[in-house]
């Protein structure tokens, strides 16, 4: 399922370098993501995985390199412009709007699909109401897809962590993205919640056909789901390949377990 080789990659990340003062967070990483591919990025803590996501979503600006998404350069664009191009993400530590309900959080995912301006909003009747009702219907489909019905009207701050992660995935899906970035979707979850999330990620691929970049520490999940894996360490690429190859790659083993003593 590595996608049609004749199609251009949806994302091309070329030799990107990002440094904070002396710390090189990303030090020359290159990869690409095929249309409808599930691409995983793994590596020890502090390896630069989340920095890659922050470069992609426009939160950080790299000093060098090139990032092109669906044929357009992402560098120099602001986060909301990148979101409009069709790039959606979730965060390692859930970044939901805790005071808002599940419905409102998902409606916020629809933000750039709702075209009316402040003046129509003030009047409400007519244009604004039509758009709200239509987008509410779209959001309800996602609630149905992720089985969030029973929490619909609760403020997300009151929900258990596993459900919050699912709501955040829902908010990203509500954006109707062309590429989905998942930052540790099962981090801190128990076995049951992890299995639920794995099922949703598979559903996203099969029913919605959205390519995914997955950053995750749960190796079982990565090896089961990913088409290709990129291993990074200290901001540098260690290896790229199919899950089976990566598992036995000597460099990868060294990055995770340390130098093998030869004496």
């Amino acid at each position: 399922m590595t996608g049609d080789p004749e199609l251009a990659p949806i994302l091309q990340f070329t030799d990107v370098r990002l440094a904070f003062a002396g710390v090189r967070a990303i030090d020359g990483i290159t990869f690409h993501v095929e249309p409808s591919e599930l691409f995983a990025i793994i590596g020890p803590n502090g390896a630069g995985k989340t920095s890659i996501f922050n470069v992609l979503s426009g939160v950080y600006r790299p000093q060098a390199g090139e990032v092109s998404f669906a044929g357009q350069s992402l560098l120099g664009r602001r986060p909301h412009q990148i979101a409009r191009l069709g790039l959606a993400r979730t965060f390692q530590n859930v970044e939901l709007f805790a005071n808002l309900t599940v419905l409102e959080n998902l409606m916020l995912g629809r933000h750039h699909h709702i075209a009316y301006g402040p003046l129509s909003a003030l009047v409400w009747l007519g244009r604004a109401r039509r758009a709200e009702v239509a987008n509410r219907a779209a959001v309800e489909e996602i609630i149905d897809f992720l089985e969030l019905e029973q929490w619909r009207r609760l403020p997300v701050g009151m929900l258990p962590f596993g459900i919050q992660k699912r709501v955040e995935l829902g908010r990203a899906l509500a954006m109707q993205p062309k590429l989905l970035l998942l930052d540790e979707p099962v981090g801190g979850m128990n076995v049951e919640e992890t299995e639920d999330m794995a099922r949703f990620i598979l559903d996203i691929r099969e029913e919605l056909d959205i390519p995914v970049i997955l950053v995750e520490h749960d190796m079982g999940l990565v090896m089961d789901l990913a088409d290709r894996v990129l291993v990074v360490d200290f901001g540098r690429p260690v290896a790229t390949g199919k899950p089976g190859e990566i598992q036995h790659h000597p460099e990868v083993i060294r990055a995770y377990l340390g130098e093998v003593s030869t004496t």
């Binding site: 909301h80 979101a83 409009r84 970044e95 005071n99 916020l108 933000h111 409400w124 709200e132 954006m175």
Partner: peptide, 22 residues
Amino acid sequence: SNVGRAFTAIRDRDIAAGVIGV
């Protein structure tokens, strides 16, 4: 409305608000 929701998004988490398109 969409505008009011965007306001609360900015209030609660402005970075996340930008990333979802506000």
